[in-house]
Design a protein around this nucleic acid. Structure first.
Lengths: 341, 341
DNA sequence: GTCTGCGTTGCAAGCGTTTGCAGAAATCGC
DNA sequence: GCGATTTCTGCAAACGCTTGCAACGCAGAC
């Protein structure tokens, strides 16, 4: 026998003080009905007195599984990720599951560490909402046999569902909306990235513009994600000398950053230039002017993800599929008829 | 012997395939130097092949402690909380600690559940950044012997540090700044709450206004936290018929909500009414007009919290103290000279 | 007064690690 | 070539819990 770590309160301590066996205490704490109610209340009283809290690690180990939903996101600063996380969290809590989140900050070594963590924790299900992921890591998850859902990355597999938003549709719709308002010189502000889904957005933008009016001009700008990234991209745009009458942004946060920089330059929105976003975050409604954007149903996405990883199979969305979500244009005050140049 | 759950990859499986004992595998995986390098590389190869990931629950159990920092926050939607969380997370990662967060959503049963979770996880340290907490729960944490830091709640104890922001100072400074600009009719927009720290803010506001100019008018409004809460409070203010020339908000998010509603009403900021906030979140810089606010150094707070719960004792901030942070006024464009009424 | 059956409880193995200690293998000195 | 060291490795207990199975006590049936 080794040294006894007497500090830690455990089942045995409670059992001893209550004059029963550990199994009985365990059964009481797990609400197994076979315990006589007098015993039950005595045990509960003792547990309370001793300030006992079950060791969750031991529990998970003994049960051979944990009641934890793992969530990996790129960046909680972006309300898009945050909202999905919040939905997942509330779904999980509703089922008595705990949640462990990890941010990757767009750093791949952090992603790796997060995946390892989740597998090490033997999470019951895993949601990965990041913008880039190497094939190799996807395989690691697939091999772990943990039911998982990914956002817009790779192809679905046995235990992995892939969910993506059809940005192409959203971009097309937005472009033709702006075209109808007379815009013939447009810019797209997105992320720097060589990933297929991202570069596809740029391509779609250019094609859409030219399809609407073959003589229209279209240019691409990019920056890091977030308010600052939007601002930075807008700066580059202004310095490039290109003067679009409308700017499509890949998300609302960047759009707000863009608007900030345009205002700085003395431009008025939407009089001088129209701006649109994607996501329809709460801020889109509160910024000035309120932002025209493409609504992406983040709650719905969250629910779908939850269902597909922990939906017990009998649900509509089970693991191993691809699910596509369509955005929807929400018109507010940041867009208007094109300024005559 | 019971049924063997053959699916789960474990140390034994690796040990067997590599022809060594589990202890050796364990030592390899923990980078204990006593292992011969040929054995070491063989084990690593097998672990890789088998796609082995150590079970973190078993590890924590065996080690008798976990390398986890627990964080409980009210609401990650509020960048104030989010920023502190992010700082804590990065400090923790820098030390090889993992992080588990829980949101309480201002719900006390969620707070209770979160505290239980953290204790059950035997976290190495606990940061509690919530706006309300019952004495009883504070005691639970104190009894758990886990090093903890609380934000603005209760009094410091043996293993608990309390950190708070001196809102009174910030409010006084803001009021006298506005007074100097000629404002004599001011409103304060805060949270509904009977808690001492919150009601003290209201009191401080009223006193400050009257101290600056005894004839000045001051009124209090309140709403839930967040953009919507600010908007709601502004609505009530407008409906009350009170027409302040300046509105102090208890945080930036509410201030942005307030501005939105004022604009809706056709009021111009700061020409018709000045608005100020607290926190100095990123959005304060990006909203329109950029917000005059009281900077609260959230990064610093995060670092202090981390130090005080996991600072190994030899650091400047150790558990069991009270630490007070002063806000600092940042003037932007949402404030100006009072409109002559 | 035995027997059956049921509601309760206890025993002990097992979950996948870590780690003190002892034993085995390799290295060295002479 | 042999004992003394020094490495290296394995054994087995421990971490705190769950849970299948067996055992116990007691009621009612006969």
């Amino acid at each position: 026998m080794r040294k006894r770590r007497s500090l830690a309160m455990n089942l045995d301590a409670v059992a001893e003080k209550a004059g029963v066996s550990t199994s009985t205490v365990s059964r009481v704490l797990n609400n197994l009905e076979i315990v006589k109610s007098s015993t039950r209340s005595r045990v509960l009283k003792v547990a309370e007195e001793l300030n006992y809290h079950p060791n969750l690690h031991a529990r998970s180990l003994a049960r051979g599984k944990s009641r934890i939903l793992g969530i990996i996101v790129s960046n909680m600063e972006n309300p898009f990720f945050l909202d999905i996380y919040r939905t997942l969290e509330s779904d999980a809590h509703a089922q008595g599951l705990e949640v462990v989140v990890a941010n990757t900050d767009y750093r791949s070594e952090q992603l790796l560490a997060s995946v390892q963590l989740m597998i090490g924790l033997r999470v019951a299900g895993l949601a990965v909402i990041v913008s880039e992921m190497e094939e190799h890591l996807i395989q690691t998850v697939a091999n772990s046999r943990i039911p998982a859902a990914f956002y817009d990355v790779g192809t679905p597999q046995k235990n992995i569902t892939n969910i993506r938003v059809d940005y192409r549709k959203g971009i097309k719709k937005t472009v033709s909306y702006l075209n109808a308002l007379g815009h013939r010189r447009m810019a797209f502000v997105g992320h720097h990235s060589t990933l297929v889904p991202i570069s596809e957005r740029r391509k779609t933008f250019l094609e859409s513009v030219h399809r609407c009016s073959p003589s229209a001009e279209a240019k691409i700008f990019a920056g890091p994600d977030g308010l600052d990234g939007g601002r930075q991209a807008a700066r580059e745009l202004l310095e490039s000398g290109f003067r679009p009458t409308a700017i499509l942004c890949v998300n609302d946060l960047m759009a707000v950053g863009v608007m900030r920089e345009l205002r700085e330059e003395g431009l008025q929105i939407p009089k001088d230039v129209s701006v649109t976003g994607f996501d329809n975050i709460k801020l889109a409604e509160f910024c000035s002017p309120p932002l025209t954007t493409n609504h992406i149903p983040r709650e719905q996405i969250g629910h779908i993800i939850f269902q597909s990883v922990l939906g017990n199979g009998r649900e509509e969305y089970d693991t191993g599929r691809e699910i596509v979500i369509d955005p929807e244009l929400v018109v507010r005050d940041s867009t208007g008829v094109a300024a005559k140049s």
